[in-house]
Design a protein around this nucleic acid. Structure first.
Length: 646
RNA sequence: GCCGCUGUAGCUCAGUGGUAGAGCACUUCCUUGGUAAGGAAGAGGUCGGGGGUUCAAUUCCCCCCAUCGGCUCCA
């Protein structure tokens, strides 16, 4: 007999060799029907794999991330089976699960797959799924495995086998399809009730462009058709929210081939929005003791040799510009930190001065490969809401806490309510790739963990994800339709203080090295605005939106009154415009609705007589008439409610 | 940078081996209208760029450029 501990703390005694599925059955038949896989002592297993030792058991269903991933991995096998049925001789690369679905890299020989072929494959997958074939695990020797795939003519699997050791090789089969696979898999194909193959792309074997390019097919599956339908609706919604589309429609930004790819041009409305975001953060930073600094757009090559960035990124940067007479080399600045280090060094520092916090909305330029550019999220020139905090080692935790406060204030003000913090620490095994003393690292890592805990953050710890110069904490937010984005980042850095020989005089009258914290709540203005656009679907919070109010006269007889209304509002810090176009009120309303202006003020004979406005809320319709001042007060209240939450 | 898709008016898109069309937007005029599109007229395109085939290319072929979807990379 073995002991199986369940998450609720209970322990069940079962015969050795009992499977997770059998345990589930002993709990309830309904649960057993929904079990996709199991976590056995923290490792994900097939639900049908016998357990021979005492174990902690967690049953995984569709509600668990790992359950979903197991299903999607199995779906990749299902797709492979369908492909093999439709295109005999097809060879397979790898077919993993993703956060949202799965893909399989395949070599179809001469056959060129197009998106028109996908429905056919989907149909075949559903047909095979309905057979409810079991996924069968089989341990096999390396020799046998090599023989099997040699027979099949699948050179990619043979390539994969080269790096595997005897004793760790398993095959999984379902129906007529057998694949080299570590597993685990769902019990049978019958769980797959809905399939959507999303797109096709080229991908090199093992991601190396020297290798042959395979066809990558992306797909997603669900246990219910309804969930697939919802997912497709979400994809449609995502398309509607695409910041590139909304950016054009709302006239926020544009690109020009003449200016250069990846170099955004901010239009007046977008610039107003961005300025307002900057002012908002600037104000919060001043309150938090930051000192604004300004540095130039270029820096001498020597600066980056000192910082170490030249060695690491020099070849991949925009190439240096030279002074015509002396031939001195300058780089477009790819980050602000080296400049800020030199500001720190501009005078001797005492331990009493620390921390000092230099903040700058600094525009930086980085060479990004042409294929990687994407709207505002991936550009070649962007502005970081950058700041560098220079502090004593004993201040790291407190500074971290303060930065976390600031980041959360930003999130709250912009309605990002769903976020997690990823704590990136050193690789547990290999510490050689990091610089800085063990002692300092230990301290910094502890500081971050304690700060995050103190602030009650929902955290994920990732080992080996730290930068070579220090641990960091990144904020991942979920937007309104459930997509994850990495926004703010806080990083501890031991490298630059070392390289720039930064010092302060301690209470002991000795020289000490400060610790540097890089932080950017937005990350970059460009990327943040892009995420914000998609998060709120272009309907920005009232305090931020470029135009808060559209004043719409019923006819041109009331244009003067409309202008009077606007002037009154502007004096009360409400911003807007008058639509005095020669159109009927219905058209003006429609234009303002499409332009996502939060408030429309309809003014005609009645309003002019009463010195009032008829209020209409975007997306919500008529709110009735009120005096101008009352409306302005309402707007101010709505704005303050959001911004004074700190 | 690599692979694939696409490129026609400001935007969304039709179309053709004989040098182009719609809707919206824009301009002018009529209309003065009460909560999501009033009417009429007009202007607007070297059909991404270059080369080739052809009597003739926006259309067929080649090369570039850019977009999009991926790959690789990301201080």
């Amino acid at each position: 007999m073995i002991n199986i501990s369940l998450p609720d703390g209970s322990v069940r005694q079962v015969a050795a060799g009992t499977t997770a599925l059998q345990v589930a059955q002993s709990i309830s038949e309904g649960l057993a029907r929904n079990v996709l896989a199991a976590k056995v002592n923290g490792e994900i297993w097939d639900a049908s794999r016998p357990i021979h030792t005492d174990a902690h058991l967690l049953l995984l269903t569709w509600n668990d991330v790992d359950g979903k991933k197991t299903m999607w991995h199995s779906s990749a096998h299902l797709m492979a089976e369908a492909l093999e049925a439709l295109y005999p001789g097809v060879k397979f690369g790898i077919g993993p699960a993703l956060d949202n679905g799965f893909y399989y890299d395949v070599d179809l020989g001469d056959h060129k797959l197009s998106s028109d072929d996908l429905p056919k494959i989907e149909k075949k997958m559903l047909e095979l799924a309905s057979l409810k074939k079991e996924y069968v695990r089989q341990e096999i020797s390396k020799i046998e495995a090599l023989g099997f795939f040699h027979n099949k003519g699948d050179e990619y699997k043979i390539d994969l086998l080269q790096n595997l050791n005897d004793g760790e090789i398993t095959l999984y089969s379902q129906g007529n399809f057998t694949d080299l696979c570590r597993g685990p898999h769902i019990p049978n194909t019958g769980f797959v009730k809905a399939v959507k193959l999303l797109n096709i792309a080229g991908a090199y074997w093992k991601g190396d462009e020297k290798n042959k390019q395979l066809t990558r097919i992306y797909g997603i599956t669900f246990p219910k058709q309804k969930e697939l339908d919802e997912y497709l609706v979400m994809l449609e919604e995502a398309k509607k929210r695409d910041h590139r589309k909304l950016g054009r429609e709302l006239e926020l930004f544009t690109f020009s081939d003449k200016v250069g790819m990846g170099l955004p041009l901010w239009l007046p409305a977008g610039a107003a929005l961005r300025e307002r975001l900057q002012q908002f953060l600037q104000k919060a930073q001043l309150k938090a003791g930051y000192l604004p600094v300004i540095t130039p757009h270029i820096g001498n090559k020597q600066l980056y040799i000192t910082s170490g960035h030249y060695e690491k990124y020099g070849k991949d940067s925009f190439q240096p510009i030279r002074t015509p007479q002396e031939g001195e080399e300058f780089f477009l600045k790819p980050m602000n930190c080296p400049h800020h280090c030199e500001i720190y060094k501009s005078k001797p520092r005492s331990y009493k001065d620390l921390p000092v916090r230099f903040a700058e909305f600094g525009t930086v330029y980085r060479y990004e490969q042409s294929g990687e550019l994407h709207g505002l999220t991936r550009v070649r020139g962007f502005t970081q809401d950058d700041a560098h905090l220079f502090c004593r080692p004993d201040q790291v935790k407190e500074e971290f806490c303060k930065v976390i406060d600031l980041v959360l204030y930003v999130f709250r003000s912009l309605d990002f309510t769903d976020y997690t913090a990823q704590i990136s620490l050193r690789d547990k095994e290999d510490r050689s790739k990091y610089i800085g003393t063990d002692e300092n690292w230990e301290k910094a890592e502890q500081s971050i963990i304690e700060a995050a805990t103190e602030k009650g953050l929902r955290t994920v710890v990732e080992y080996g994800e730290a930068a070579f110069y220090g641990p960091k904490l990144d904020f991942m937010v979920k937007d309104a339709i459930g997509r994850k984005w990495q926004l703010g980042t806080i990083q501890v850095d031991y490298n630059l203080p070392e390289r720039f020989e930064l010092e302060y005089t301690g209470a002991d009258n000795q020289k000490h090295r400060p610790v540097m914290i890089h932080r950017a709540p937005f990350g970059s203005m460009e990327r943040f605005v892009a995420v914000l656009i998609e998060h709120c679907a272009g309907k920005f919070p009232l305090w931020l939106t470029p135009q808060q109010v559209a004043v719409l006269p019923i006819s041109d007889k009331f244009n003067d009154y409309a202008k009077e209304v606007l002037e009154t509002l502007q004096q009360l810090d409400v911003r807007g415009f008058v639509d005095d176009s020669n159109e009927k009120i219905g058209k003006k309303i429609r234009d303002a609705e499409i332009g996502k202006v939060p408030y429309m003020l309809i003014v005609g004979e009645k309003e002019a007589a009463d010195k009032a406005v008829s209020v209409r809320r975007q997306g919500d319709g008529d709110k009735g008439a009120m005096p101008i001042a009352a409306f302005a007060q309402m707007v101010q209240n709505e704005v303050n409610e959001k911004l004074n939450a700190l």
